[in-house]
Amino acid sequence: MKIFNALRISLLATLASSCLLNVAHADDALKMELTSNQVVKNSEGKTIYTPVRTAPAGTVIQYKATYTNTINKDINDLMVTLPIPTNMTFTGESVPASAQASTDGKNYADMPLMRKVDGKMVKVPYSEYRTLRWNIKLLPAKKSAAVALNTTVN
């Protein structure tokens, strides 16, 4: 299955529009870089990340967004959101693990998401997760922070 440039553009647009900054001139304050890498374990069990543009079903892909504060002032309470592409299923792995998840892109809760079925609380399947968000409490001046999520190609 192909990972299209249009998907990257869509993710970039969503990410850029999801950032909430408490700084003047926020448009110039934050630079974001998005990468997609295939996640594989080598023979020694070490995780290797390799840039990828196309991948068959079943391939694990990590989407990583790196945010760089480009100004000489700290940014506090930076809320960032990373969508899960429609042709992907979230694996349950996020970095940092403090991410909250949403099935609709509006309502977020700590993971694992739960719902009531027949009077019992059950976990929401990862296949229903549509976005993750993180609160970067402090992004110091001229520093970077990264968030990531792993997905499997459907």
Rank of each mutant, 00 (worst) to 15 (best):
T152Y: 02
I84F: 01
H25F: 09
D104E: 00
D118L: 01
L139D: 06
N42F: 09
S102H: 10
L78Q: 09
R115S: 05
K123Y: 08
N76P: 01
D27V: 10
T103R: 09
A65Y: 04
V122N: 11
E44D: 11
K123L: 10
A97F: 12
Y63L: 11
A145K: 15
A29Q: 01
P85V: 10
A99T: 07
R53G: 06
L7G: 02
T14R: 01
R53E: 08
A148Y: 01
A141N: 07
T54D: 13
A101F: 02
W134R: 05
N87V: 09
D74Q: 14
S127H: 05
N76L: 04
M114I: 12
G45S: 07
Q100F: 10
S36R: 14
S18I: 04
K106P: 06
M111A: 09
T152N: 03
K106F: 12
T66I: 07
N72I: 10
I9G: 03
S98D: 07
S127Y: 05
L132N: 00
I3M: 02
A141H: 07
N135Y: 05
T47C: 13
T35H: 09
I61K: 09
V52F: 09
V117T: 12
G92H: 00
A146I: 03
N150L: 04
N76I: 05
T91F: 03
Y67S: 00
N72P: 04
I3R: 04
S94F: 00
D118G: 05
T70D: 10
I48D: 03
A145I: 13
D118P: 04
V117M: 08
P51H: 14
G92C: 00
K73P: 07
L15Q: 13
I61W: 05
F90K: 10
L78K: 06
K120V: 15
P96F: 07
V95H: 13
V153D: 00
K143V: 01
T68H: 03
I84W: 06
V147K: 07
T54E: 14
F4M: 11
S144L: 08
N69M: 07
Q62P: 14
L113Y: 06
A97M: 11
I71W: 11
I71S: 08
L12W: 03
T14M: 08
T54G: 05
L132F: 03
D28P: 02
T66L: 00
T131D: 11
V122R: 09
T68Q: 06
L15A: 15
N87P: 03
S43L: 15
T81S: 15
T86W: 00
A145H: 15
E128V: 00
T70A: 02
T103D: 04
A29F: 09
L12H: 13
K142P: 08
T70G: 07
T151V: 15
R53A: 12
L113Q: 04
S43K: 15
M121W: 07
N150W: 00
K73S: 11
K116T: 14
E44S: 12
G92D: 09
D110C: 05
K116G: 00
T89E: 01
D27G: 00
V39D: 03
N87M: 06
D77Y: 05
D110W: 07
G105Q: 12
A141L: 04
F90A: 15
D27M: 11
T152H: 04
S17Y: 00
T86V: 13
V124H: 00
V60M: 01
K120R: 13
K142D: 10
K31S: 15
